[in-house]
Amino acid sequence: EEVLRGVAALPPNNVITQSFLQYVEMVNEAGKGIVSIQVIGGPEAIPPTQQDTALRNGVIDIQGGPAGYYAGSVPESEALTGATITAAQARQNGAFELLRNAWRSRLGAELLAWNGSGTRYYIYLRDMPEFDADGNVLLSGKKLRSAGTYRDWFDALGAENVMMSQSEVFSALERGVVDGFGWITFASDIGVNRLLKARVGPAVWQGSPVIMMNGARYDALPEAAKTVLQEAALALEAKITAEMPARIAEEEERLKADGISLVEPEPEAAARYEDLAYSVVWTKLEADLPDYAAKIRPLLYPDR
């Protein structure tokens, strides 16, 4: 039996890690006697931003986590953020193949699954926002806790990027050092619900969690093992896509129960807000990797 050493980028209570662990379970179940994954740890074993190096060098065999942590070595991965289609659609229309090639050439890695499609991004605020005459949510001038992913978007919104570590988010929100922050759909995980009044919609972007494997290790596996890994990937993506609506609904119920309003502007203003968020991602990618962006944009971000 082939035993693969796996590492998760985030701690076990994180949704992304949980879906990686589901994948591990599926592989270990279907691959009995052929292939199995042994999870040797998470961020306590290898820092998330160094897991790309570990995977490329074969210190670990398989990894699950947001591609954003290694956007500095696979810049193509940022295209996932600007996607409006599901993982299954991306596989069908060839976008996944383009991404897989990028992972191969940049990291020598096999991209196995995009296991977070359906996870979206919102801005969370400690006070109810105001609207301007055109129905846009007024975010200009707001101080938002930021990180690399959000920087250009917040700039485009006219908001102020406040760079700080996660360990300061609570105190900063509580005292009003920041007015809010950007986060994925599952905000309850960070434990600051009590300090929040509003979640600003509409949802934009998509999460970029993926599962990847050391390429040489993958290539050397027997066909049967590869099949197990690939089939589990497809099954995981399908499962996540199917479960996502219920999980989103559950999270929204929890936010509402905690007194957080789910703010949605009128359709026209919503469309402007969405367009701005996506254009930031695609403009950056077009500037950094023009050829690649031209190929993948129509696939991941159609009808625009």
Partner: peptide, 13 residues
């Protein structure tokens, strides 16, 4: 490899 560390501004790793 031209890797960068993604921070407030990108810095070569």
């Amino acid at each position: 490899r031209g890797e960068v560390a993604v921070r407030a501004v990108d810095v070569p790793r």
